[in-house]
Nucleic acid binder design. Structure first.
Lengths: 64, 64
DNA sequence: ATAAAATGTAATATATATATGTCTAAATGA
DNA sequence: TCATTTAGACATATATATATTACATTTTAT
């Protein structure tokens, strides 16, 4: 439920639509990923991380 | 082309089939991921990383 | 209080990740 | 050398990520 993606996006002052456009997906896709209702592809995870200045672990990894 | 996944798998003495079974995918899927011919889902990346004792960044992140 | 922007949500359509089956070719060990 | 395991490769089938459209709700600013 941790919303690291949303936090990183807001920190960059980007709307869902702007982030979506930068990583070439639909706005809805970003919305669902932020809600944890999606299982995005590795490529998309990497694109999001790079756009937000984070790494995969920063945004998508959970330690046990 | 870096084969970090294959290296981590061999280090754990697992065959493609054993790794596939542990993360509940087909052997072919692991083979293609190791060859870089696939764009796996985040869930699968996480399952593979945990099984191999690595993180997402260890296996799937490339710094520029 | 109102308008505009941002986000949530749902239905249907399409692209692609993954499964399954089969065959071949290395690799490993007896 | 032979048998067995492991892995590469290809075709077709299925599940699901993602697109598209549209409308509702919430936020933000005026």
């Amino acid at each position: 439920m941790s919303n690291r993606i949303k936090m990183a996006r807001v920190e960059k002052s980007l709307t869902q639509e702007q982030l979506a456009s930068r990583v070439s997906v639909a706005r809805q896709t970003i919305g669902l990923i932020e809600k944890g209702k999606y299982n995005p592809s590795l490529k998309l995870c990497i694109a999001i991380a790079k756009t937000l200045g984070k790494t995969l672990d920063d945004l998508f990894w959970e330690d046990d």
